[in-house]
């Protein structure tokens, strides 16, 4: 459905923030892109939406159902966003207009992409809200965003994202800044997306585990591991992925990896980007490792070369 091929992104003359990202999101996939702040995951998502600022330089190709998105005109892109791609913004962000009722905002989105009467749209909106576990959809339509709790607002945003009938959902850190209880509600809403294809960028491992069927890990602008969700969370391959899982409070809150060295120019490096912090490093890690296949999974680490 969504094919990302050799995509590299940089801002102006700064070093690359995404280098050579290549992956496909198939119909019905639920893909989580995991990485820390600055690993380039959000930039990649914005690139797929065509929302990067003009100073960004993108090479490679991003195709939606075979159609090239890079270099598309803004008019076409805004048609595609909403109708074919739904976008769910960050959890703590205020994606709703405080001056209009929830119903009005939902109807607007519905009618923009599928002409119908106000009344029909309102019924649809209410049904949509109820399908996300929000009770009394019609009452909810009449309320203003400030009357809702944070968790409700986030679910309304998710409903609004897909109101126009998009089959591909892109979510940018949907749990950022939310507390555990609200994260659970968002997880629930994501499960209710049903058959829709999902690409979700997050730094929240628990959330990724709960909602994804496949994961990609990014570190310092590169993909370093990809594979199906279950085997990843059972046995991560890359030393960075392992360190992440071990650092979870429920897995012991271990901090057994060194501090990252000051950020440097990733372009100039010829060694593995993880070299300075890697517990397994050896001489051959002076050369950048390629993505190696391990069964169905892939990992960027020399340890799996043999």
């Amino acid at each position: 459905m969504l094919e990302i091929e050799e995509v590299s992104i940089r801002f102006g003359h700064n070093p690359e923030v995404v280098s050579d990202a290549t992956f496909t999101v198939n119909d019905g996939d639920r893909l989580a892109v995991i990485g820390e702040t600055g690993s380039g995951k959000s930039v990649l998502l914005l690139a797929a939406l065509g929302l990067l600022p003009a100073s960004a330089r993108i090479t490679g190709s991003i195709r939606l159902n075979g159609r090239e998105l890079l270099g598309c005109r803004e008019r076409e892109l805004s048609q595609i966003r909403g109708k074919e791609i739904a976008y769910i913004p960050q959890g703590s962000g205020n994606g709703l207009n405080p001056l209009y009722t929830v119903g009005r905002q939902l109807c607007e989105t519905i009618r923009k992409h599928r002409p119908c009467t106000r009344k029909e749209a309102l019924l649809q909106a209410a049904a949509l809200l109820e399908s996300f576990g929000l009770e009394h959809g019609e009452d909810l339509c009449r309320s203003y965003p400030f009357q809702l709790s944070g968790g409700m607002r986030q679910r309304v945003l998710i409903a609004m994202g897909i109101a126009a009938g998009a089959e591909l959902v892109l979510a940018d850190e949907p749990t950022k800044g939310l507390d555990r209880r609200r994260i659970t509600l968002v997880e629930d809403a994501f499960h209710r997306l049903g058959e829709r294809t999902l690409l979700c960028v997050t730094h929240d491992l628990r959330f990724a585990k709960a909602i994804s069927s496949r994961v990609i890990v990014m570190y310092a602008s590169q993909q370093i591991e990809s594979g199906d969700s279950r085997s990843f969370f059972e046995e991560p391959l890359h030393p960075y992925s392992r360190a992440m899982l071990e650092a979870l409070p429920e897995h012991g809150l271990h901090a057994n990896m060194g501090f990252a060295p000051p950020r440097q120019d990733q372009d100039a490096r010829s060694d593995c980007h993880f070299y300075d912090r890697c517990p397994w490093r050896s001489e051959r890690c002076r050369n950048a490792p390629p993505m190696l296949a391990v069964g169905e999974r892939k990992v960027r680490c020399w340890k799996y070369a043999d």
């Binding site: 600055g38 100073s55 950022k176």
Partner: peptide, 15 residues
């Protein structure tokens, strides 16, 4: 200014 815009974008993108 081009410089200011870049920095802001990078900050946003990193989040």
């Amino acid at each position: 200014s081009a410089h200011g815009r870049d920095r802001k974008e990078k900050g946003n993108a990193g989040n």
